[in-house]
Design a binder for these strands. Structure first.
Lengths: 153, 153
DNA sequence: AGTGAAAAAAAGTGAGA
DNA sequence: TCTCACTTTTTTTCACT
């Protein structure tokens, strides 16, 4: 992966629905060369996928909450099934297993507090043996939210 | 926005680089109808953008850290410029202003601890008057990370 | 709004440098 | 691995239901 690929990646990370011709012009290459590079980047898994970013407002999911979870120590061996539970929960947009006194941090995106409450109820019901404690950090403002990575070597 | 649009959205949220024909077949509509719907969804801002998701491994950004920041109370009126600072920082992938004893939560994605340390140094240097305290939650594992929203009414 | 066909645009392929 | 010319696929447009 050379410098041109990185330039292509940083363009595609911002907007991927541009014709190859446009990219070709900015990197001074022919369209086919650019298309061939993009195919290879997909092939090699450098580009994992191309996705549509949907407006949270438009589908009424404007409430973001970071949830810090502490897990019962006795259940540390059952974490796998809990991770699957999280992975399947549609309200959970992101989720990390972290160091420190907190064990998991979840980013939960829902319609409103009622829906959040329902989510927490479900969590505490279906995973009551596991979760020792939780803390909700309600996002008053999302300053920035995306998946862009700095791509330079 | 009807049910068909929502189906289209949920497909596009997963993978947006499929021909309209494929979507047309799954929603039982002609290609032109589907393309017209997609154009309108973009036009109306329901689809904010189409982006490439880049593999963190492939570009060597495998260290994710959640940073909790507490802000000096005296500087609450200067938050705007701090938000701009965060927005411009390439290491900061996401950032929320939250309720509770913590004020901001940042998702910082970097190459390694050295790079993270450099980031924190820069933060503390350039925003020393603002930041009272910070806490790093290092992600040992990213269970799930994306921008997908449940799209149903 | 939708369909289906024609036109336009974009992406993919292969020979030669 | 690039470019250039060519083919195939996809998207857009348009007349009509």
């Amino acid at each position: 992966m050379d410098d041109i690929d990185r330039t292509i990646l940083s363009i595609l990370q911002e907007t991927a629905d541009v014709p190859g011709k446009v990219i070709a012009d900015t990197v001074n290459l022919s369209t086919s060369a650019v298309e061939r590079r993009i195919s290879k980047l997909k092939q090699d898994g450098v580009i994992e996928k191309i996705v549509a970013v949907v407006s949270p407002k438009a589908v009424d999911r404007t409430l973001s909450i970071l949830v810090e979870l502490e897990i019962q120590n006795e259940h540390r061996h059952t974490l796998e099934q809990f991770q699957r539970w999280l992975d399947r929960a549609p309200e959970v947009q992101s989720c990390w297993y972290v160091t420190g006194d907190v064990d998991f941090v979840l980013l939960v995106v829902v319609r409103n507090l009622e829906e959040y409450n329902a989510f927490v109820d479900r969590l505490m019901n279906e995973q009551q043996a596991l979760v020792r404690k939780y803390k909700s950090l309600i996002a008053l403002k999302t300053i920035k939210h995306g998946l862009e990575l700095s791509v330079h070597a």
